[in-house]
């Protein structure tokens, strides 16, 4: 089943600035997809249309078979959860617990269920010890996990992560890998925007590339990261290991250390 389908979708901000121009793609339920590409390409704008935070100027968006234009943002948000690029745009409660519980309470869920959901989302996002902390007393990197937990607690079918990797250290990246893996195991659809090429390669196979308001690539990572014209258009670079393979004139399509080692063994 198709979770998300975009057909000839365009978007313009007020004052008419076109940020997304005629894009089409679809994402299957249960799929893991990364979106990458140059700053200002329209990635955030695109994913915000998936749950009605922004509405297209033209084109059709379908969410699990339903025409999104006929659904309210609140209804769409029960199926599609968006984790903001800037945690400051999302967080407004005084404690981590209340922040994660906010939407659940809003939906008038009963108390024990709220508690169960908050605790399990917090555990998944390594926040069990911070439930009574004010989110703004947490470092920026950890605050991102609070916003992820809020969306996880909603038990949505599609989880969209907008640059979760920004500012994360080694452990933070490892935790995010685990979260994405768990969501995938649970059958969720995961869409992640990231500028960290190693992270993208480590966690995703299908990659959508955006540049200058359009989708300029949608393929397996092994194709994407050896398509130099595409990489250049989208302000991307090959991962370092691929650059090394290229300079040593090894086989094409090496994208990580494992590939490199096995090619080197031959």
């Amino acid at each position: 089943m198709e979770a998300i389908k975009f057909e000839h979708v365009s978007f313009a901000y007020e004052h008419g600035f076109v940020a997304v121009d005629d894009i089409s793609f679809n994402i299957q339920s249960g799929e893991k997809v990364a979106i990458i590409g140059q700053n200002g390409a329209g990635k955030t704008t695109t994913v915000k249309m998936m749950n009605g935070l922004l509405r297209p100027k033209s084109g059709e968006i379908t969410v699990f078979g339903d025409d999104a234009s006929k659904k309210t943002t609140a209804t769409l948000s029960k199926k599609v959860g968006y984790v903001f690029q800037n945690p400051g745009d999302q967080i407004f409660n005084q404690t981590v617990y209340n922040e994660i519980a906010y939407s659940l309470k809003y939906l008038k869920m009963d108390k024990t269920e709220v508690e169960r959901r908050v605790n399990s989302a917090a555990a998944m996002c390594y926040l069990s010890d911070e439930l009574q902390t004010n989110p703004y007393d947490l470092p920026f990197s950890i605050r991102k996990f609070v916003t992820i937990a809020s969306v996880v607690a909603m038990n949505v079918d599609v989880v969209i992560l907008d640059e979760p990797t920004a500012g994360q250290d080694l452990l933070g990246l490892l935790h995010q890998k685990e979260i994405i893996e768990q969501l995938h195991q649970m059958g969720k659809t995961v869409v992640t925007i990231s500028h960290d090429m190693e992270f993208v390669i480590d966690n995703f196979d299908r990659i959508i590339v955006m540049a200058d308001k359009k989708i300029v690539g949608d393929a397996n990572k092994r194709e994407i990261f050896w398509d130099f014209e595409l990489l250049d258009k989208a302000a991307l670079k090959q991962p370092v290991v691929s650059q090394l393979a290229k300079r040593l004139e090894l086989k094409r399509n090496i994208i990580n250390i494992v590939d490199f080692v096995s090619e080197y063994e031959k």
Binding site: G37, Q38, N39, Q85, E163, A166, G167, H195, M197, A234, A235, L236, K237
Partner: peptide
């Protein structure tokens, strides 16, 4: 302090 966290790879360069 972490000036490239939100930048695309060419921006980082």
């Amino acid at each position: 302090d972490e000036p490239t966290s939100q930048l695309d790879p060419q921006g980082t360069e």
